[in-house]
């Protein structure tokens, strides 16, 4: 009886692992020439934002005239692997923060600088620059302890049917991956490319802008950039992308 139970647990764990492994980056759904363009830093338009973020990194800002680099030094070493662990719980406030919010928190709390507007060029650039330092590293977010209720809330949001069209994230991004929604192929919903350059927008955009586009698609309320619901969802997406490699800056249709 006990061995049968153990076998069942092993079988179930295997099934879950297989699901995680079979998820693939939306990059693989792109035509080969766009995949090649993402892979080539000289051709990937998202690199313009990364470069702009690199300049901002060492630019003084706020009442104390401090820059990111004054405390964090060379981002290529100090920020390596950071984005792969976000969203994360901020130890001081106990709040779940994504990378954009962490950058703004650092500005307001440590630099006496104003928070940068979400989806503005500067925050996109800094976020892209910091995330880029994790390119090629596996996503590995904490989903235990204080993060657990956020992960669970994100999971519930993901599986809840919503909007006038009454569709859940999962119905597309688990059940119909690779199929066509109009001309676009449905991805596995991995958040590993963001901020990403989207051809549809002709510019860089955040994951939350992409989530808002999905909300609009099912005719659901578009939540605010940085809203707790989207940050929780971001954590769930990162958790289900465990082990997948960060790609920032991604290129998407």
């Amino acid at each position: 009886m006990r061995s049968a139970l153990l076998a069942l647990v092993v079988l179930m764990a295997g099934a879950i692992a297989a699901t995680a492994e079979t998820r693939t980056s939306a990059r693989e759904l792109l035509p080969p020439e766009l995949q090649a363009q993402q892979a080539d830093d000289d051709a990937n338009p998202g690199m313009l934002w990364v470069t702009s973020g690199q300049q901002l990194w060492s630019m003084p800002a706020g009442a104390n005239a401090k820059s990111c680099s004054e405390c964090h030094g060379d981002a290529t070493t100090s920020m390596r692997g950071i984005a792969a662990r976000y969203p994360a719980i901020d130890a001081k406030s106990g709040r779940l923060m994504n990378l954009e919010q962490r950058i703004n928190n650092c500005r307001t709390a440590n630099m006496a600088a104003a928070a940068l507007p979400y989806e503005g060029e500067d925050l996109l650039a800094l976020t892209a620059y910091v995330a880029h330092q994790s390119r090629g590293l596996p996503v590995s977010v904490r989903i235990d302890n204080a993060a657990a209720p956020h992960f669970e809330a994100g999971r519930r949001f993901y599986f809840e049917r919503q909007g006038q069209l009454n569709v859940s994230c999962s119905q597309c991004h688990d059940d119909n991956v690779g199929r066509r929604l109009r001309g676009d192929r449905i991805s596995s919903g991995l958040p590993t490319a963001w901020p990403a350059y989207r051809l549809d927008w002709q510019k860089m955009g955040s994951l939350h802008r992409r989530l808002r586009a999905c909300s609009l698609g099912v005719r659901a309320e578009q939540l605010d950039f940085g809203s707790p619901e989207y940050v929780n969802l971001e954590l769930y997406l990162a958790g289900r992308a465990d082990g997948h490699l960060v790609e920032t800056p991604g290129l998407r249709k």
Binding site: E160, Q162, N166, R219
Partner: peptide, 19 residues
Amino acid sequence: LMPAYHRVDGLTRVAARYR
């Protein structure tokens, strides 16, 4: 997956313009 095309109850988080 097919939405109900003539129903308004039992829906969640519907955008204001479609509510």
